[in-house]
Simulated scan of single mutants.
Amino acid sequence: MRKVAVSLFVLLLASSLVGATTYTLPGSTSYGYPYNNIGLLGTVSMEVNVTLLNTAPFPKFIIVNPRYDFRVNRLSGSESMTAYLNGTQPVHVLPASLARNTLNYRVGFWIYPYEAVVVTFIINQNYSYPIPMENYQDVCGGQDQLSDLSYTNGTLTGGHILSGDDIGTMICGVVYPELLNAPKIVYMQSLFPLRDGNIRILKYNGVVHFTITNVPSQNGEFRTFFAVAIPVIFKGANITDFTPNYTMMYSDYVHRFIWRYMGVEAPTPPEPPSMPHVSNMFQLTNTLITGQSVEPVIPKPPAEPKFDFPVWIILMGKEVEITYHISWTTEGR
Score class of each variant (00 low, 15 high):
residue 222 F to L: 13
residue 222 F to E: 10
residue 222 F to H: 10
residue 223 R to D: 03
residue 224 T to S: 12
residue 224 T to I: 06
residue 225 F to D: 05
residue 226 F to L: 06
residue 226 F to H: 11
residue 227 A to K: 02
residue 227 A to G: 01
residue 227 A to D: 05
residue 227 A to E: 03
residue 228 V to N: 08
residue 228 V to E: 00
residue 230 I to G: 01
residue 230 I to R: 14
residue 231 P to W: 06
residue 232 V to I: 15
residue 232 V to W: 14
residue 233 I to Y: 10
residue 234 F to G: 13
residue 234 F to W: 08
residue 235 K to E: 09
residue 235 K to C: 05
residue 236 G to H: 11
residue 237 A to I: 05
residue 237 A to R: 13
residue 239 I to Y: 09
residue 239 I to F: 03
residue 239 I to C: 10
residue 239 I to D: 08
residue 240 T to L: 13
residue 240 T to A: 13
residue 240 T to N: 15
residue 241 D to Q: 15
residue 241 D to H: 15
residue 243 T to R: 13
residue 244 P to S: 04
residue 246 Y to M: 09
residue 246 Y to Q: 06
residue 246 Y to S: 04
residue 246 Y to F: 12
residue 247 T to S: 15
residue 247 T to F: 06
residue 247 T to C: 03
residue 249 M to V: 00
residue 249 M to P: 03
residue 249 M to Q: 09
residue 249 M to E: 00
residue 250 Y to C: 00
residue 250 Y to S: 10
residue 250 Y to H: 13
residue 251 S to H: 01
residue 251 S to W: 05
residue 252 D to K: 15
residue 252 D to R: 11
residue 253 Y to G: 05
residue 253 Y to R: 04
residue 254 V to C: 12
residue 254 V to T: 14
residue 254 V to Y: 10
residue 255 H to G: 05
residue 255 H to N: 12
residue 257 F to V: 03
residue 257 F to M: 06
residue 257 F to I: 04
residue 259 W to P: 08
residue 259 W to K: 03
residue 259 W to S: 01
residue 260 R to G: 05
